[in-house]
Design a protein around this nucleic acid. Structure first.
Lengths: 96, 96
DNA sequence: GACAACCTTACCGTTAAAGATAAATTGCCT
DNA sequence: AGGCAATTTATCTTTAACGGTAAGGTTGTC
């Protein structure tokens, strides 16, 4: 399943999710309730052992109140800046 | 399958993929060869009828030589404020 | 009309994601 | 040490992604 580059993508995305979650003091159980995704499934995603679907990532991003791109952006990306919101860092609740 | 917001996410991502692909003059068959994803599967993804995995999106992004975030960054990354608390966080301090 | 190049849809088989549950594990306390 | 919360891992079931193939549906051009 999945080659090395893809593995790294999953591991990186998982790390970002975990960082975001723990920065908010949420447990897997709590995030599970917020997302409707089971805690074991979240654990697998955060440890890069599962290849989540797009809508699964979206539910996580929404629950953590970060953008989907925040969770999957790999440094090498120049995202065209959707104007007015740089998303350059942790967004602490500035929405327009 | 999938609620409305998620459906929109899939449709939007599909549109972006299709726009990018056709802007490069690629057919579904050609993109299928580049990505290793079958043309029928790509068709379903581009029309928002399938919920692709993260690594699937990555393969498409790579083949089209755009960033993953380009394909999924849209208006959907801003979640409504839901101003439930002054700290802006969930307060779930006391859970057992 | 017939043909061609796309794209879409439908079916089937394999594989994996995701829910549920339980068990094992780690870590963090007093 | 023990207990407790959090996380990981394992097993099972259901559902869906994905590839393959084949069949339909455009939209053209000759």
């Amino acid at each position: 399943m999945v080659d090395n580059a893809e593995k790294k993508l999953l591991v990186d995305a998982g790390k970002r999710i975990r960082e975001t979650r723990s920065a908010q003091g949420l447990s897997l159980e709590q995030l599970a309730r917020l997302t409707g995704i089971s805690a074991p499934a979240l654990s697998l995603i955060e440890t890069g052992k599962r290849d989540p679907r797009l809508t699964t990532l979206k539910r996580i991003a929404d629950a953590l109140r970060v953008s989907l791109t925040t969770l999957i952006a790999n440094g090498s990306d120049v995202v065209e800046p959707s104007p007015s919101s740089s998303t350059g860092g942790y967004d602490l609740g500035e929405y327009h």
